Simulated scan of single mutants.
Amino acid sequence: MMNFAGTRRAVAYLSRNQPMAPSIKETARMKIIHITDTHLVPAGQTLHTLDPAARLKRVLDDVNQTHPDADLVVLTGDLTQDGNPAAYALLKSLLSELSMPVRLLLGNHDARDNFRAAFPDHPVDRHGFIQSMMPVPGSDDRLLFLDSNSASEIGGRYCEARAAWLRETLAACPESPLTVFIHHPPVAHGMAHFDNIGLHDSEVLMQILRAHPGGVRHIFFGHIHIPMTGTTRDGIGFTAGRGCTHQFRQEFRNPAPDWIAGVPNYAVITLTPELLSCHGVDTIDAQAIAPANVCAGP
Rank of each mutant, 00 (worst) to 15 (best):
A5T: 15
A5N: 12
A5S: 12
G6C: 09
G6P: 11
T7G: 13
T7Y: 11
R8L: 08
R9T: 15
A10P: 09
V11Q: 01
V11T: 12
V11D: 00
A12M: 07
A12N: 07
A12Y: 12
Y13W: 14
Y13D: 03
Y13E: 02
L14M: 06
S15D: 15
S15Y: 11
N17S: 14
N17K: 15
N17R: 15
Q18F: 12
Q18M: 07
P19W: 12
P19H: 06
M20Q: 13
M20W: 09
A21M: 08
A21R: 11
A21H: 10
P22W: 11
P22Y: 13
S23F: 10
S23Q: 14
I24R: 09
I24E: 14
I24Q: 07
K25Y: 11
K25S: 13
E26N: 08
E26L: 10
E26P: 05
T27W: 02
T27F: 04
A28V: 15
A28I: 12
R29G: 03
R29M: 02
M30D: 02
M30Y: 09
M30F: 14
I32P: 07
I32V: 15
I33Y: 01
H34Q: 04
H34M: 03
H34I: 04
H34A: 05
I35W: 02
I35G: 00
T36D: 00
T36F: 00
T36N: 05
T36G: 01
D37S: 07
D37R: 05
T38Q: 04
T38K: 02
T38Y: 07
T38I: 10
H39C: 03
L40A: 04
L40H: 12
L40S: 02
L40Q: 09
V41F: 05
P42W: 08
P42I: 07
A43Q: 11
G44M: 07
G44N: 09
G44Q: 06
Q45T: 10
T46K: 15
T46Q: 09
L47R: 14
L47H: 15
H48D: 06
H48V: 10
H48G: 01
T49M: 05
T49E: 06
T49C: 02
T49R: 11
L50A: 14
D51N: 13
D51E: 09
P52A: 01
A53K: 06
A53G: 11
A54C: 08
A54T: 06
A54D: 06
A54V: 03
R55T: 01
R55G: 07
L56E: 10
L56P: 09
K57F: 08
K57Y: 01
K57L: 09
K57W: 05
K57E: 10
R58F: 00
R58E: 08
R58L: 07
V59T: 03
V59K: 05
V59W: 05
L60D: 05
D62S: 13
D62L: 00
V63E: 01
V63G: 00
V63Q: 00
V63C: 02
N64L: 00
N64S: 03
T66G: 02
T66K: 00
H67A: 03
